[in-house]
Design a protein around this nucleic acid. Sequence first.
RNA 1: UGCCUGAUAGUAUAAUGGUAGUACGACGGUUUUUGGUACCGUUUGUCUAGGUUCGAAUCCUGGUCGGGCAACCA
Length: 552
Amino acid sequence: MSEERSLNFIEEIVEEDIANGKNGGRVLTRFPPEPNGYLHIGHAKSICLNFGLALKYNGKTNLRFDDTNPVKEDIEYVDSIKEDVKWLGFEWANEVYASDYFDKLYELAVALIKQGLAYVDDSSAEEIAIQKGTPTEPGVPNEYRSRSVEENLQLFADMKAGKYPDGAKVLRAKLDLASTNMHLRDPLMYRIRHTHHHRTGDAWCIYPMYDFAHGQSDAIEEITHSICTVEFIPHRPLYDWFIEKLNLFPSKQYEFARLNLNYTVMSKRKLLQLVEENHVDGWDDPRMPTISGLRRRGYTPASIREFCERIGVAKRENMIDVGLLEFCIREDLNKTAWRRMAVLDPVKLVITNYPEGQEEIFHGENNPEVEGGDGSREFQFSKELWIERDDFMEVPTKKYFRLGIGLMVRLKSAYIIKGESVVKDADGNITEIHCTYIPESQSGNDTSGINVKGTIHWVSVAHAKTAEVRLYDRLFQVEDPSNEEGDFKDYINPNSLHILPAVYIEPDLANAKIGTPVQFMRKGYFTLDKDSTPDKLVFNRTVTLKDGWVKK
RNA sequence: UGCCUGAUAGUAUAAUGGUAGUACGACGGUUUUUGGUACCGUUUGUCUAGGUUCGAAUCCUGGUCGGGCAACCA
């Protein structure tokens, strides 16, 4: 634990800046989501990076909503984003909105017009696209590019005043139509949108574009390190240009590669489609890679933070194996989740030499990983128990350590038993297993001298409660659905959800709480779902236990 | 066929001209009243061709391959 992890390239930059006394050693980052969807695990990487940097270097982080496109944004998303960031365990210094700066941004645009560095263009979107040229051919100026400052000032004021319909005019920066960087060919700064904004209402009908909102917001807040993903690299010269021409605080942009996880999709557009077309149960469906989905699935904030730490930060494209995420949640839950017994695929076990009607109370540690077991709970033992169907094999194979005819196994926290015979139905399916128990082998008090290789879990037929259990598998059948032939939805895993309507659980599990993880011994980690009612418990499987047993 | 980026085990990530290391995975073993955990071990790598240098993953040149860029999205 005292092992130092080496610095990622952004931490190196920050340390160098601090060493050079840049910004007086001050570090202020920001997490700037557009409130047009729910946060996913890719955002978690950015959140952990931005907030983590501030924590590490004694700085602060702003939560800023990049709400410059009212057509796609909604307050619902603002609320969910705040909830998710908090849940991950981070505190922002200021909650701010790009829309807070609409007045300031308008002034800055006017200032640029006055310098002759911006103009109002009456062209249509199509015309502008054509006039921009292609990467190999320079763009060409149009008649509007040479409008006078006075005329531009008037037209821009008229745009703001609502004198024109959507699309009639735009404000563009006057840069370089021949630039090899397409983003510098007179980029749009403002467009007309007669749309209600979730925060500013109908106060505005012109809205700034990303390039004229993001960097300026950074500068207004005096962000020292503005960290974004690599697809914004071509925007950086523009980012710097606006700041320079407007003489603003010199925030600097740095870029890292976004997270890609296999067997899922990460784009908001695709996630939205999954939700809207009902391929999943909503943004927080436990199969979704959203923060809310992972939370409902049973992932913990600590496990997600650890995951983000382990994947590292670099600039090259990457595809992280979802197995690493699973490793992180198992690692966390192994240390914290209480152990309970639940039989998912039951078959009845009858102990023929156990007295009819007799009951015994046994105890089980809550967590053997914790000193002292973290307390214990009680459960009843009786003549008839439920055990897992695959914990019995009529004709055992060589390395089978569980129950078989003539094979002995321990019932967890109870007795050693020996398989004797089976009862089958007309189709040859086993309906009951008969066994005998060794009275001297009681757990913690074993004088039998018998050593068995296997231990299986169980619940008493007379005392078990039932619950619905939802087993989840990966949402897609291929590693990279977005990169396959055809539509990504063609690769949805039809078996990503498997519902077990009536699983037998030990009585104590009736006290389960939403948000408290539990290990069903030998089966995996589970968590109570929000669909639960007092009459009907529903558990989600977060992840299976690692299975080191190579069958046959 | 322009510009910008990137390339280290299966997957990620470190080594900042001086022994290619770490994690996850896989495989094997020890312990175990969870075939879990823990612990131990094995495995596999510098895209390519030149150059500079006593010495190159690192610096230089050419090539190859991947990603991004021509939204009134962010």
